[in-house]
Computed example of a mutant assay.
Amino acid sequence: MLFPWVGQLEQVRLADIYVHYTDVQFSKGSFVNRVQIKTASGPCWMTVPLADLRFGQRIDQVRASDKRPWRDEHLALLADAYADAPHLDAMLDMVRGVYARDYAHLGALTTASLLALCRYFGLDRHCRFVDIGELGVSGTGSARVLEIVRSLGGTTYVTGHGGANYLDHAAFDRSGIEVEYMDYAKVPYPQLHGEFTSFVSALDLVANVGSRGGEYMRPRTISWKDFPTHD
């Protein structure tokens, strides 16, 4: 995800190892190249335009388009939306730092945005980040995810809610690996522009709370056996 929401940072906080899974198919309309921010006129999408997108491309094959100055547009949008936020400068400095580099593909950009947030909140101190390309694990779908966890010596796999659509929970059980779904806390914090919402980029947390934002991350999980939509 591009500068992901607090829920994904909670997932990182729980993890001993976090795998950047960028060699899978890009899904148009997903959060890979876009994220919502909160503005005075309501939620607004902050989107990275894509160059020559073709159906079936993997995330690590999709490239950002530079036909328009989207980096400057994003910074201007953020500066306006968070003009009254106490930690505006820290948030903008983070985004400038990420956008100062060129990236070979969209996956590298989104990885950099996640890592910037993790470093800011100190989540990188106890979590090791691994790129899927380092593991050499083949296959697809649930079987591949299981093999990734096994290759890293994992005993618990923590996933977002989308995993309920394809994970073979029984296969994980047979391998002695627990599957835990995130039970997102969505703890309210001081926020501009009306009623609180958690479904915005964690840049919102940076701008409004600063480095104390970690106090509002209270990760918890629920076993797949108790998850409402399990098979």
Rank of each mutant, 00 (worst) to 15 (best):
L2R: 11
L2C: 07
W5V: 05
G7P: 04
G7I: 04
Q8C: 01
Q11C: 07
V12S: 08
R13C: 05
L14G: 02
L14C: 09
V19Q: 06
V19R: 04
H20L: 03
H20D: 03
Y21K: 00
Y21I: 08
Y21P: 06
Q25P: 00
F26D: 06
S30D: 13
V32S: 13
R34L: 12
V35G: 05
A40M: 01
A40T: 04
C44D: 01
C44Y: 12
M46S: 13
T47Q: 13
T47K: 14
V48I: 15
P49Y: 09
A51D: 12
D52Q: 13
F55G: 11
G56Y: 09
R58Q: 12
I59M: 10
Q61T: 09
V62N: 14
S65K: 13
H74F: 10
H74C: 07
H74D: 03
L75H: 00
L77I: 08
A79T: 14
D80R: 14
A81Y: 05
Y82R: 04
A83N: 11
H87F: 15
L88W: 04
D89R: 15
M91T: 06
L92M: 12
L92G: 08
L92H: 10
L92V: 15
D93G: 07
M94L: 15
V95K: 05
R96P: 05
G97R: 08
G97Q: 09
Y99S: 04
D102Y: 07
D102S: 14
A104L: 05
A108M: 07
L109Y: 02
T111I: 01
A112G: 08
A112K: 03
S113K: 07
S113M: 11
L115F: 03
A116S: 15
A116T: 09
L117N: 06
L117M: 11
F121P: 00
F121L: 11
L123E: 02
L123P: 04
R125V: 06
R125I: 01
C127W: 04
R128F: 00
F129Y: 15
D131K: 07
I132E: 15
I132F: 06
E134N: 03
L135Y: 13
L135V: 10
L135A: 10
L135D: 14
G136A: 07
G136Q: 09
V137M: 04
G139I: 12
T140R: 15
R144Y: 03
V149Q: 07
R150M: 07
R150D: 01
G154H: 12
T156H: 11
T156W: 01
T156C: 07
G160H: 05
G160P: 06
G160M: 05
H161S: 15
H161M: 08
G162A: 10
G163V: 04
G163Y: 08
N165K: 12
Y166A: 09
H169T: 11
A171G: 09
A171D: 12
S175D: 14
G176C: 13
G176D: 13
G176M: 11
I177M: 06
Y181C: 05
M182A: 15
Y184S: 13
Y184G: 02
Y189Q: 01
Q191V: 09
L192G: 06
T197P: 08
S198I: 02
F199G: 03
V200F: 10
A202S: 15
V206S: 03
V206Q: 03
V209F: 00
G210L: 01
G210I: 03
G210W: 05
G213P: 05
M217T: 02
R218C: 00
S223Q: 08
D226N: 13
P228T: 08
H230E: 04
D231R: 14
D231T: 08
